[in-house]
Computed example of a mutant assay.
Amino acid sequence: MNHGTKRARIAALLGDPSGIGPEVMVKLLAREANRAAAEILLIADPAALASGQQIAGAPLEALRVDRLEDVRFEPGRVTLLAQDVLRGDPPALGECRAASGRAALQALDEATRAVQHGLADAIVFAPLNKHALRLGGMTHEDELRYLQERFGVRGFVCEFNITKGLWTSRVSSHVPLREVARLVTRESVGNAVAIIDGALRQSGIAVPRIAVSGLNPHAGDGGSIGSEEIEIIEPAVQELRGRGLDVRGPYSPDTIFLAARRGDFDAVVSMYHDQGQIAMKLMGFDEGVTLHGGLPVPVATCASGSAFDIAGRGVAKIGGLQAAFDLCARMAARPPASAA
Rank of each mutant, 00 (worst) to 15 (best):
R170C: 15
R170M: 15
R170W: 07
V171A: 09
V171N: 06
V171P: 05
V171D: 01
S173M: 12
H174Y: 10
H174I: 10
H174L: 13
V175P: 14
P176F: 13
P176Y: 12
P176N: 14
P176K: 14
P176C: 12
P176E: 12
L177E: 14
L177T: 14
L177F: 14
L177A: 14
R178S: 15
E179C: 14
V180Y: 04
V180K: 08
A181K: 15
A181T: 13
A181P: 09
R182M: 10
R182N: 11
L183R: 11
L183V: 01
L183S: 06
L183C: 00
T185V: 06
T185L: 02
R186L: 02
E187Q: 04
E187L: 02
E187R: 04
E187H: 03
E187I: 01
V189A: 00
V189F: 05
G190S: 08
G190Q: 05
G190T: 02
G190D: 05
N191A: 10
N191C: 01
A192C: 11
V193D: 00
V193H: 05
V193L: 03
V193I: 11
A194C: 09
A194Y: 03
A194S: 13
A194D: 07
A194R: 15
A194P: 03
A194V: 08
I195T: 06
I195D: 06
I195L: 05
I195E: 03
I195Y: 02
D197C: 12
D197K: 08
G198L: 11
G198V: 09
L200W: 06
R201W: 07
Q202R: 15
Q202L: 09
Q202W: 06
S203H: 03
S203K: 05
S203R: 07
G204A: 04
I205Y: 00
I205K: 03
I205G: 00
I205C: 00
A206K: 06
A206T: 11
A206P: 04
V207T: 06
V207E: 05
V207G: 00
V207L: 01
P208R: 00
P208K: 00
P208N: 01
R209L: 01
I210K: 08
I210V: 15
A211F: 04
A211S: 09
V212D: 04
V212E: 04
V212S: 03
V212N: 03
V212I: 10
S213R: 06
S213P: 07
G214Q: 10
G214Y: 01
L215F: 12
L215I: 14
L215A: 08
L215C: 13
L215M: 08
N216F: 07
N216T: 10
P217F: 12
P217C: 11
P217H: 08
P217E: 12
H218G: 08
H218C: 07
H218T: 04
A219G: 10
A219R: 04
G220S: 13
G222F: 09
G222Y: 11
G222A: 11
G222I: 10
G222P: 13
G223L: 10
G223E: 12
S224L: 15
I225L: 13
I225R: 10
G226T: 05
G226L: 08
G226N: 07
G226V: 07
G226P: 03
G226A: 05
G226C: 00
S227R: 10
S227L: 11
S227G: 02
S227W: 04
E228G: 00
E228C: 00
E228L: 06
